[in-house]
Write a protein that binds this DNA or RNA. Structure first.
Lengths: 336, 336
DNA sequence: CTGTTAGCGCCTTCAG
DNA sequence: CTGAAGGCGCTAACAG
C-alpha cells in the first residue's frame, strides 16, 4: 500500500502536489500532472480514505441496523437503501439485531466509533434508548418501519394501522364476524399498530368479540398462535397474520388441523412476498412499498447530512396496498 | 463529539492515561482510573475508530460484494457472513453489483480506499481483473459461490456441476429423454458448471440431443428461455432451471401455454427457497447450504487476516442436496 | 504509575 | 504553479 508520499517521491514533487492532482484542486502545470498521474498508475496508488475521513470528519458511510436481513421485507428495504446510498457515493454497513435490544446498542456503539455519517434504524425496542444514544453523540439517523412512542424523530414507515384496518374490513365485507389476529411481539410498534387497526375495524362494525394473540414474527410464532386460536370455541372463521412468516406458520397449523383455506378458514396477512419468489400468489395481503421505504429513508438521511430541511423532525408515511387473492372468501357454515 | 483530549482535560490527566484506561493497558492507579472513567461517562466519549485504524492499519471492517442481495440465496449468504463477522468484532459493508463488471470495480476501488480488512466477492465476471486488483493492493479476499477460471485463489462454493448432474439424473431416472436446460448468463461460472453437469449426465445416459438456453438469472430470463424451449418440436418433457428465479419465469410461461406441471412437463431447479417463504413446497430442487457458505467464507477470510493457513489458496467445496418434490414426475405421452 | 514526543496519511493555510 | 508546516485523534516508545 503506497502512500501519497511514495507517489510524490517517485514523481519528484511534494505530497501536496499529488494531493492537488488527485482532488483536481488548485493549479497544476500539465507536465507535473502527467508525471504525477504516471507515478500513481505505476504504484497502483489508492488514496487512504481513513486519513481523509479523519480530517474531514466524514466517512461517506451509512449504517443500516435492522432485525433480520433474511426477512424479504427488510431485504427489499436494504436494497433500496444501498441503491440510493451508493448512487450518492455512500457505502452501507448492515447489522442484524434479531430484535435484541442489547445487540442493537452494541452495534450502535461500534458504528458511532467507526464514525458512520448516519444510521438507518429499525429499532428492536420501542424504548428511546437507542435513539437517545445516537442523538447525544450527534449522529444523524432515520427510524425505519417502526415508531418510537413519545419521541419526535425523522421516520419513514407505512400506515400499518390503516393497512390492518383495510385487511379486516375486507374480511368483514366477506361476512366474517369471528376474526383472530396473530400479531407480533407486543413491544414492537408495527405489531401494536396492526392490532389497533384490527380493533378499529371491528369496533366500527359493532363487533365486540376480539381475539388477539401475541408471538414472534416467525413461522414458529405463527404456528403457535394459530394453534391457540383454533382451540377456541366457537372457532374463528378468519385469521389475520401480522406478517408473512406468521402466515406461513398459521397455514401449517391449519394444514395439520385438516382445515382448508379459504373453504374452512380465510387467511390474510401483512407484507407481500416479492413476485419473483412465488409461483402462484395465493395469500390476500396488504403490501408495503419496502424498496421505496429504503430509498426515501436514505434520501431523508442524506438530506439531513447535507443540512437540508428546517430541522423539524419529519415523518414520512407511505401507503399500503390491499391485494385480494385466493386465501380469503366468505365464511362457510358456522362451526360448532 | 468529544476527543480523548477533552476527557484528559476533564479528568486532569494526559491523553495517554485516558488511552490506557480505555484499552486496559499498562498500570493505572485505581483512583485515576475512576476519575477518567467518570469523565468518559460525563462526556459520553466514544473513541474514534478512524484514528485508531489509521495507526493500526486495521479497520475491523469487511466487505461483501455480491450481485443482488434480493436473491434469497445471497440474502442467506449475507446473513451467514454478518453473523460470523460480528461475532469476531467485524462490521460488514455490502454492495450490489447486479452482475455489472463496472459497478464491481467501482465498488472495489472504494472499498480499498476505505481500507477494509478483507473482501468477500461473488464476482460478476469470470475475468481475473477484480481479483488481480485486490491482489495488487494487498487486500485479502475470498471468492464466493463462483469460480474464476485460470487463477488459484481462496474460494468457497458448491459443487454445482455435481448438483446439476444429480438433478438431471433424477429426471433421467423418471424416464425423461428430452430435457432442456434454462441456464444463466454464459459468462457466469455457476451457469456454465450447471450446463456441464447436465451434459455429463446426458452423455452417461447415452443421450445425444441436448437443448441449452442462456439468459439472465431472472424471472424474465426464465420466461424467455422457456418460450424458446417450448417452441421446439418435439417439445422437451422436462425443464431444468438454473436458479429459482428462472424456474418461476419458466412456470409462468408453462402456465401461459396451458401446460400442467408435472403432468405435461416436469420442472426442476437449482437453489431452494427458505422454508419460511413457501406455503407448500412444490419444486424439485438442488439446494445449496447458503448460510454455511457465508460462514465458511468469512471464517476463511478471517483466518487469512490472522495470518493463519499455509498461504496456499484453499478451495472449500460444499455439497448440494437433491430435494425431490412434486414438480417432477415421469413423462406422459410423447407429444408430437 | 504517568507524561512527552512523534507519526499513521491526508489536506488547509500560508509562503514562496 | 509548488512546497513546508501543522493538525485531525490516537497510541507505541521512551522518559521520568
Amino acid at each position: 500500500m503506497s502512500t501519497i508520499g511514495d507517489v510524490a517521491k517517485r514523481a519528484g514533487v511534494s505530497a501536496m502536489t499529488v494531493s492537488r492532482v488527485i482532488n483536481n484542486s488548485g493549479y497544476i502545470s500539465q507536465e507535473t500532472r502527467e508525471r504525477v498521474e504516471q507515478a500513481i498508475a505505476e504504484l497502483g496508488y489508492v488514496p487512504n480514505a481513513l486519513a481523509r475521513s479523519l480530517r474531514f470528519k466524514q466517512t461517506k458511510t451509512l449504517a443500516l441496523v435492522l432485525t433480520d436481513i433474511t426477512n424479504p421485507f427488510f431485504t427489499t428495504i436494504a436494497r433500496g437503501v444501498e441503491d440510493t446510498a451508493s448512487e450518492q457515493g455512500f457505502s452501507v454497513i448492515f447489522c442484524n439485531t434479531d430484535e435484541s435490544k442489547d445487540d442493537e446498542s452494541e452495534y450502535l456503539n461500534v458504528l458511532v466509533q467507526k464514525q458512520v455519517d448516519g444510521v438507518l434504524l429499525v429499532p428492536a425496542a420501542s424504548s428511546p434508548a437507542s435513539v437517545a444514544f445516537l442523538h447525544e453523540r450527534g449522529v444523524p439517523f432515520v427510524v425505519l418501519d417502526r415508531r418510537i412512542p413519545g419521541v419526535s424523530v425523522d421516520t419513514v414507515r407505512c400506515d400499518t394501522d390503516q393497512g390492518a384496518y383495510q385487511l379486516v374490513c375486507h374480511l368483514l365485507d366477506l361476512g366474517h364476524r369471528r376474526i383472530a389476529i396473530l400479531s407480533g411481539p407486543a413491544a414492537v410498534t408495527t405489531a401494536a399498530d396492526r392490532v389497533s387497526g384490527y380493533r378499529r375495524a371491528l369496533a366500527e362494525a359493532g363487533i365486540r368479540e376480539e381475539a388477539v394473540y401475541y408471538g414472534g414474527f416467525t413461522v414458529e410464532g405463527g404456528y403457535q398462535m394459530a394453534r391457540q386460536a383454533l382451540a377456541v370455541t366457537p372457532r374463528p372463521t378468519a385469521l389475520f397474520a401480522a406478517n408473512n412468516f406468521i402466515a406461513i406458520g398459521a397455514l401449517r397449523a391449519l394444514h395439520e388441523a385438516g382445515l382448508r383455506v379459504p373453504e374452512d378458514m380465510s387467511v390474510v396477512a401483512f407484507d407481500d412476498l416479492p413476485p419473483a419468489f412465488v409461483i402462484a400468489p395465493f395469500l390476500t395481503v396488504v403490501g408495503q412499498p419496502a424498496y421505496d421505504m429504503g430509498c426515501q429513508a436514505t434520501l431523508l438521511l442524506l438530506d439531513r447530512l447535507a443540512g437540508k430541511g428546517d430541522g423539524e423532525p419529519q415523518e414520512i408515511i407511505l401507503p399500503t396496498e390491499l391485494i385480494v387473492r385466493r386465501s380469503s372468501a366468505p365464511p362457510c357454515d358456522p362451526t360448532p
